[in-house]
Amino acid sequence: MTIKLLHKNKYLTFYSSTSSQLLNIPFYEGGVSAGFPSPAEDYMHSKLDLNDLLIDHPSATYYVRVNGDSMLGAGIQSGDLLVVDRSLEVIDNSIVVANINGEFTVKRIKKNKNKMFLVPENEKYQPIEITEEMDFELFGVVAHVIHHFI
């Protein structure tokens, strides 16, 4: 699932989506029953599909809803939807969904010498060091956050 660059000029870039989604309804189907056919008919493409933009690995992508304010600084607000990609490798500064001792959390991974931390992005909260005796398991890397304004 990729977005194909179609055309680029000084002001605008056009994309076409290549998607095999069954429910992708064509933007415009033509077939005007009376009057003149649309001059745009020959230039229509299927509608842009947000899945193409947000999901690189469908088999490895899960959604997670968050509650709380510990990641405000990273732009994650309470009620937001995270798009989590399990196929991505964790690197320093990745924002991850992980579980510690059976509880899920969302934090930024920071490596410091030989230590690893789960760091919140809100001064109210303290970083958590990941230690040997912890039951720590990574769920996946947060690839996108979707915030609803309405």
């Binding site: 899960y62 959604y63 809803r65 994650i76 959390t105």
Partner: peptide
């Protein structure tokens, strides 16, 4: 239904 219904997806307290 964590993966097939938006109202059911995993909810995490952070």
């Amino acid at each position: 239904c964590y993966t097939t219904r938006f109202s059911d997806i995993l909810s995490v307290n952070i």
